[in-house]
Design a protein around this nucleic acid. Structure first.
Lengths: 237, 237
DNA sequence: TGTACATCAGTGAACGCGCGTTCACTGATGTAC
DNA sequence: TGTACATCAGTGAACGCGCGTTCACTGATGTAC
């Protein structure tokens, strides 16, 4: 049909989407004050000036709202990293790595409570539905893509990994599932650095660096560059 | 005074300590079900068969109870690591490192909710009092001691760290505060591995390794050994 | 050793609050003919 | 283009529940002389 005919139909739909978004936004803001387990539908409704029961027209339950927040967080982080990395010359592996690392940290610093929601303690009693798996892997896939490129272009770990037979099998299985080609040893080292990246960010955000590191930006950059060297990615070549 | 004279006095005190401990134990068990922000004084009192107001004879507030749980968790982890490491030949640096890493992970797997309490998302609205700082650093101090010994005995990072001036200053300041002698570069690499150790454990506990790593014990050991090599600690010498 | 007094543990009711979810309903917006 | 009907958004009251903390109190235990 032409535009005027379908316009009223989508008008209601648009209003609906708008309010759905406003509820999620308000809930996101509430995360900061009370954390995910303290997230309250009533408080969100109150802030939006609507009856608490009205929220149920948009989200069937509190957990559904949480799921939306979790998926949004993963997607927001994922998009930011992807966009930043896409702007870097593909052959500049060091820059690509630094860009991903920095984007992740910057996003985390800008959205600490959303970071905590997806990389902190799981919400007790909440079971993430399968829909969350895909958005959850965006940053990881980005990193794996970089690692695959690095290995293809001849990078290798300066300290040789020695891994058990079962780890080798795990790495092979993972590559099969993801559909990327990275050798077990190289992947093993990369997974360690993946954990280190988020370990550094969590330590910074959750307070473990208090009285330990002051110049956090520089420290992080230094660590990120060192991590790149551990998978054989060196700057300026 | 002699024992009988002071006995009644300490009798009441002992009963008090016993109940204080039982309250903390029950609260610890409740952490598992509802998480720290869901921890309820009333639920604890109910389980112990006492009036909710009675708990206030032992803990002045919910936050005070939380503080106790946090300190207990740090001390429990600290003691376990210290005891395990103390049983290892001082000169066997690789073994000492592996022992600390494994003890930390084993404690975390055995006490996942206490681990989340101290290394997961901070409890919203809760401010840790200064008393918690000392227990919080036990594992870190253990690791720093090992690192100091390693450097003193000639170990050095196989991949040379390149660090900024401000990071160098941070590392020097830290060493001054702690009173240990470790060179800035070596300390820098060690802090990265410290973050990696807890990053790996958090990933495993918080679900990030689902569909990624199956043989978790072997994977962790492989990673721990690789981390040791990154500070120049090699096995079998 | 015995007694008067102080300390302490524990009670139960109350205050004031918040929560998720359901339900029958009103009134507005969209759809089909 | 107009009308009858269906869909939908939003309301407000209610259910049944839980929470932290305070307070005046009772009765037992410990202390000082």
């Amino acid at each position: 049909m032409d535009t005027p005919a379908s316009a009223p139909k989508s008008a209601r739909r648009m209003v609906r989407e708008e309010l759905t978004r406003r509820i999620a936004d308000t809930a996101r803001a509430h995360l900061a004050r009370s954390g995910p387990s303290g997230l309250s539908l009533r408080a969100v409704a109150r802030e939006l000036g609507m009856a608490s029961s009205a929220v149920y027209r948009y989200f069937p339950s509190r957990d559904a709202l949480l799921t939306t927040l979790i998926m949004d967080a993963y997607n927001s982080l994922g998009e930011e990293c992807e966009a930043a990395e896409a702007g870097v010359d593909r052959s500049d592996l060091a820059r690509r790595h630094l860009t991903i690392a920095r984007s992740t940290r910057n996003w985390a610093l800008a959205h600490p409570h959303e970071y905590a929601l997806i990389y902190g303690t799981p919400v007790p009693g909440y079971q993430a539905p399968p829909d969350t798996v895909d958005p959850a892997t965006r940053v990881t896939r980005l990193l794996l893509g970089l690692i695959a490129d690095a290995e293809a272009s001849g990078c290798h770990p300066p300290v040789d990994p020695r891994i058990s037979a079962s780890t080798t099998r795990d790495m092979e299985d993972l590559m099969e599932r993801v559909g990327t080609r990275i050798s077990p040893g190289y992947l093993f080292v990369s997974l360690g650095l993946w954990a280190q990246l988020f370990g550094l960010i969590s330590f910074e955000l959750f307070g473990q660096f208090n009285n330990v590191v002051e110049a956090r930006d520089d420290f992080f950059d230094d660590q990120a560059r060192h991590m790149a060297r551990l998978v054989g990615i060196t700057e300026g070549d």
